[in-house]
Simulated assay, not measured.
Amino acid sequence: MKSTKKTNKEPKFIVDYTDIQLPQQVYAEYILAKTRAGMAITESEAHALINYGVAIALDEIDNCLARYNTKCTVIQDDKIADKLLDVTLDYIKKKNRKPWYKRFWNWITRKK
């Protein structure tokens, strides 16, 4: 009579790849599954996670800059930029108030 042994092998950890959008996420999910199972990660896996975090941060910075740059106008022509600067400086000079001592004297001598 021949007897067969049934071995039930449980996986050490389970990796969830259902919401993967980038190739870097595959390795990150693998490392996450290892840590959830209480297993230690290697130094190269830690570096991979750091690199993945840096990539995410740089992408967010690029997105913020793209949103900010939509509100800015860049003037490429030096002549137009000089004219705009002259007009702006003239406006500021005209708008400047009197010196403080003249304003103070006018305030003292004003009619009540």
Rank of each mutant, 00 (worst) to 15 (best):
T7C: 01
N8T: 01
K9E: 03
K9H: 04
E10L: 06
E10P: 00
E10F: 00
E10Y: 00
K12A: 07
F13A: 15
I14F: 04
I14T: 13
I14L: 04
V15S: 02
V15L: 06
V15H: 00
D16E: 09
Y17F: 12
Y17T: 02
Y17P: 00
T18R: 13
T18W: 01
D19W: 02
I20G: 05
I20V: 15
Q21G: 10
Q24R: 14
Q25M: 10
Q25H: 13
Q25G: 05
Q25W: 06
Q25T: 07
Y27V: 12
E29D: 13
E29T: 04
E29Q: 12
I31F: 02
K34N: 07
K34Q: 15
T35L: 14
R36H: 13
R36K: 15
R36Q: 15
M39Y: 09
M39R: 05
A40G: 12
I41L: 10
I41Y: 05
T42R: 08
E43K: 06
E43T: 06
S44H: 03
E45G: 03
E45W: 03
A46F: 10
H47N: 09
L49N: 03
L49W: 02
I50M: 04
I50G: 01
I50H: 12
Y52D: 13
G53P: 02
V54R: 10
V54T: 11
V54E: 07
V54K: 12
V54L: 14
V54F: 10
A55M: 06
A55K: 09
A55H: 07
I56V: 14
A57M: 08
A57T: 08
A57S: 10
L58K: 14
L58C: 05
E60L: 08
E60Y: 00
N63K: 13
N63V: 10
N63H: 11
C64T: 09
A66E: 14
A66T: 12
A66H: 06
N69W: 05
T70H: 09
T70F: 02
K71L: 07
C72R: 14
C72N: 13
C72I: 12
C72G: 13
T73Q: 11
I75G: 03
I75E: 13
Q76C: 00
Q76M: 10
